[in-house]
Nucleic acid binder design. Structure first.
Length: 421
RNA sequence: GGAGAUGUACCCAAGUGGCUGAAGGGGCCGCACUCGAAAUGCGGAAGGUCGGGCGACCGGCGCGGGGGUUCAAAUCCUCUCAUCUCCGCCA
């Protein structure tokens, strides 16, 4: 949600920043409605004050035995006028709300300008893509041959875009989850295990609703509940409607959660393998910070996600998402892209974001220092990492000529093995 | 799923139609005691949110959430959500 006071304070500057997203959101119209809303609000408040004054005088008049009937009528008349004006007010309010819920966050000045992910700017690279003296296989072929990935079984059980892991594949998924969570908790994150079904309020708080209800969210029939699309939703909403003690900031959580997405707009993309699933395992990391700390936090959170890739010795690069690829709620963010031999390019494996106060305003998450006023926190999150894509990247990058796969050092203890064969 | 109870500010909690932005605590700030802290005592401020004003301030809303009755609602009615207890069911 937007900070209306900030919009009013310097509308041209605000608009210029929003224009960088390349879409006209009708901000001018919004400001007009907002002005009309405040005018109507003032009207109502003046009338209410008048009515309150009359109401307050009634008990005293009663005591003195004065004529109450006339004054009660007057109050009733004001009450009727108020009802009419309140109706107008509600209409304005609904329009403003609809607008505010549907307009994405303001990009930070440092976000590169661009139209799509092709315009994202590479920030740094780590590791070297492997070279093979044989024809490397894609993870779906490799996994099938090793008997650890069974897409056909998943299709029978449910349908397309679901996966089934078996044996060392299933074990590696579990190993990755454990490894990632252990690593994050050692860096000061508190591990949480949350509900995997979220309500409308929570998904609105983080920005998935109302705009992406049809494309992204699996809704449970005859309820107002949704399958968790990312642990960002339950984890961020831990502090929904709270005023947290400023002394406790920053708050850092990590969580593993199965994530469910409809993938509405992605027909035909990434149809093979583990890359784009309706259900996928993901470890998420989340920060709640003071406003002045959130950009440092974005760097440290991103570094925590990168650390996992480095530990696994997977080559990757970091790109700064451009204004056209930023996402709805983010003010700034990076994508971590892992080298995927079958794609012969880097593929997104983590996305980190600073939402500033956008989510905090929607979810009403504030902090207060002793003796101070409450302020909205800044929220951040990132995948740390998408487990299915990590698994795919390990299979592809660590494959050997004989079709076996070397297990990364840090996973060997979890796997109880050196190789998958 | 059935029956009952509860839901008040950062936390606990009083309050059943007007004198309640809401007693009293805790917490917070200051002082005393102490080597220091804890405990204790004394004093103090503030309270969420929106609108107006440069400001001192003024006004609206607000007692889980929505709707209603009334001149007037924390208080009455209604729907709803959450928590607790008992029964049922179940991993």
């Amino acid at each position: 949600m937007h900070d209306i006071r900030r919009m009013r304070a310097d509308f041209p500057a605000y608009k210029a920043l929003m224009d960088r997203r390349g879409v006209d959101y009708g901000l001018d119209e919004f400001m007009k409605v907002e002005e009309a809303y405040r005018e109507a609000l003032r009207d109502v408040e003046v009338m209410r004050a008048e009515q309150n004054k009359i109401s307050k005088s009634i008990p005293e008049l009663k005591k003195q035995g004065g004529d109450i009937a006339a004054i009660m009528n007057e109050s009733r008349a004001i009450g009727e006028k108020i009802k009419v004006q309140e109706q107008r007010l509600r209409e304005f309010d609904e329009r403003l709300d609809e607008f505010l819920m549907g307009v994405p966050n303001v990009p930070h000045e440092s976000v590169p300008h661009g139209a799509s992910d092709a315009d994202n700017v590479e920030v740094r690279k780590w590791g070297t893509p492997p070279t093979f003296d044989f024809a490397p296989q894609a993870h779906w072929d490799l996994g099938k041959a090793l008997g650890i990935l069974d897409m056909e079984a998943a299709a029978k059980i449910t349908g397309s875009r679901f996966s089934l892991l078996r044996g060392a594949g299933a074990r590696m998924e579990r190993a990755l989850i454990n490894f990632m969570l252990n690593r994050h908790t050692s860096h000061g994150y508190v591990e949480v295990s949350t509900p995997l079904i979220v309500n409308r309020r929570s998904a609105t708080g983080t920005g998935q609703l109302p705009k992406f209800e049809d494309e992204m969210m699996f809704k449970l029939e005859s309820t107002e509940y949704f399958l968790n699309p990312t642990a960002e939703v339950p984890v961020t909403n831990i502090h929904q409607d709270e005023i947290v003690d400023g002394a406790n900031l920053p708050i850092k959580y990590c969580a593993f959660a199965a994530s469910f997405r409809k993938e509405g707009g992605s027909a035909g993309r990434d149809t093979r393998g583990l890359i784009r699933m309706h259900q996928f395992p993901k470890v998420e990391i989340v920060h709640f910070t003071r406003p002045e700390d959130s950009y440092d936090a974005l760097e440290s959170l991103t570094a925590d996600a990168e650390d996992i890739l480095q530990q696994l010795n997977l080559p990757y690069r970091v790109v700064s998402r451009c204004t056209g690829d930023l996402g709805f709620a983010a003010a700034k963010g990076y994508d971590l892209e892992v080298w995927m031999p079958s794609y012969e390019r880097y593929v997104e494996i983590s996305s980190t974001s600073n939402f500033e106060a956008f989510q905090a305003r929607r979810a009403n998450i504030r902090y207060k220092d002793a003796g101070g006023k409450p302020f909205f926190v800044h929220t951040l999150n990132g995948s740390g990492l998408a487990v299915n894509r990590t698994l795919a990247a390990i299979l592809e990058n660590n494959q050997c000529a004989d079709g076996t796969v070397t297990i990364p050092d840090v996973l060997k203890a979890f796997m109880g093995a050196e190789k998958i064969f």
